[in-house]
Design a protein around this nucleic acid. Structure first.
Lengths: 93, 93
DNA sequence: TTATTTGGTTTATAAAATAAACTACTTTAT
DNA sequence: ATAAAGTAGTTTATTTTATAAACCAAATAA
């Protein structure tokens, strides 16, 4: 069933972000923007949606006097990603 | 880059439809509606988008007095699907 | 001190996804 | 013969999404 693809994960940019977090551990706003090559606005919006879904945790602070937004995946986020992977694999040869 | 995921294929329902066509050859409206468990309206809209992208070919006719909409994937559709598969695999463990 | 850069957020808009309502024709029941 | 029900889809309306442009605040450089 096509609805098995969790729409929170399925978004192109959110999938890229979650996938990166799963593969590389914790990250931050700047790095996620770089690796995805998305605009800052888009990254900001999608991080908020992932946080609202409790798939990531966002911690704002400072690093070398500049603001710094740390991002880490939650256990729920990891579980949702794994479910998503199982679901989408059914569509791939 | 997250933009490598072809948005025409990436849609949940369109991915289910294209994937089914690739795996099972030609199909028709009714069968695609059944296997995806989507509403008729949603199937109708997504088939039109796939046709507009020239990823499928739609042939309307009659079968046992009832209208019948045959659907088959085009070579462009198959190529786009294969590219999509390569792209999304980069996000999966 | 006035630019410029860094690190973001908010806002505006266009595009998507989806289901409800509708159309047209066929078959069945009365 | 005609009303009711079923088949096969399309169109329309509505809610979400995705996205980038414009914006904001603080730090550093000129």
């Amino acid at each position: 069933m096509y609805k098995d693809l969790n729409p929170i994960i399925h978004s192109k940019l959110r999938l890229a972000i979650i996938s990166y977090l799963v593969a590389n551990g914790a990250s931050d706003f700047k790095q996620l923007k770089e690796v995805t090559q998305a605009t800052a606005g888009n990254v900001s919006v999608q991080l908020k949606k992932l946080e609202a879904a409790k798939y990531i945790h966002i911690k704002k602070g400072f690093l070398n006097n500049y603001q710094h937004t740390a991002v880490e995946i939650t256990p729920e986020g990891l579980a949702a990603f794994e479910e998503y992977v199982d679901a989408i694999k059914k569509y791939l040869p």
